[in-house]
């Protein structure tokens, strides 16, 4: 039997009277890449925030291996170090250089040695092509560069699970690719990831499994090939159609 890194069981999340996530259950194996897709407002981002205990939950539980991840729970700080998260809006710390952004948590939260952390940070920055930006401030970087730094910052804490919350949604099209490439690279090295995205072709390329969320439910769960070519549910079909454009051919050729 495969080893489950993450177990989400019966997760229910409400904002007031609005139930955002209804009794969600799924498991993630070590090394697996899960892509969560669905229409806006379906609860994708909330799901990631609940997994990282940034939101209190009203029912069910989130387990990392055998530890309960719960706001206010014990070991939460250690558990969060095992769950990295990258946000849509990068959220680098604007008062710190790129290098200090990356080394802050390893040095202050994990009490690791400065020299060791900096060496690792520089190696990771080199891998994402940003070694020369180590001493820059976030405001001096482009969106794509900031997002790559944010990924490196999350990686440097050595998380076992990485959560990506629409990390390319705020980027210009030509910058999307550089960020997606970094993520494809991570998948290739066997990182366990849960990715919320609207990039359908990327989802298809990177996913081991697709979760389709709608109205706070997992409506469909399938390997990417099957999901994208032959979705089983009507709702998934309709959702995927919104990404297709019927061509307007047979226009008279302009001289």
């Amino acid at each position: 039997m495969a080893e489950h890194l993450l177990t989400v069981r019966g997760l229910t999340k409400r904002f007031g009277s609005n139930t955002v996530l209804k009794d969600i259950s799924f498991q993630v194996e070590r090394g697996e890449v899960i892509v969560v897709i669905g229409p806006s407002g379906c609860g994708k981002s909330t799901l990631l925030r609940c997994i990282n205990a940034l939101e209190p939950i009203e029912g069910g539980e989130v387990l990392l291996e055998n530890d309960v991840v719960n706001p206010g729970g014990k070991n939460l700080i250690e558990l969060r170090q095992k769950i990295g998260m990258v946000f849509q809006s990068y959220d680098l710390f604007p008062h710190l250089t790129v290098l200090k952004n990356i080394t802050l948590a390893p040095m202050k939260a994990q009490k690791r040695k400065k020299a060791e952390v900096e060496a690792e940070a520089m190696a990771l920055l080199e891998r994402v092509g940003l070694k020369d930006k180590a001493q820059s401030y976030p405001r001096e970087l482009s969106g794509g560069q900031k997002q790559r730094v944010a990924i490196v910052r999350a990686l440097c804490v050595h998380p076992e699970l990485l959560l990506f919350d629409e990390v390319t949604a705020a980027l210009d099209p030509e910058m999307v690719r550089e960020v997606l490439d970094v993520m494809l690279n991570l998948a290739a090295t066997g990182k366990t990831m849960i990715i919320v995205t609207h990039e359908m072709r990327f989802a298809r390329a990177i996913a081991d499994r697709v979760l389709f969320l709608d109205g706070g439910d997992i409506v469909e769960e399938a390997p990417p090939e099957r999901f994208f070519t032959a979705p089983e549910t009507e709702r998934a079909k309709r959702f995927l159609e919104t990404f297709e454009f019927k061509s307007v051919k047979a226009r008279p050729a302009t001289p």
Binding site: R80, I83, G84, M85, D91, F93
Partner: peptide, 15 residues
């Protein structure tokens, strides 16, 4: 979200 991204890096509320 600055607070949240620090938390998700495993920094304690005080830090």
């Amino acid at each position: 979200i600055q607070k949240e991204s620090a938390y998700s890096l495993g920094l304690s509320p005080l830090k």
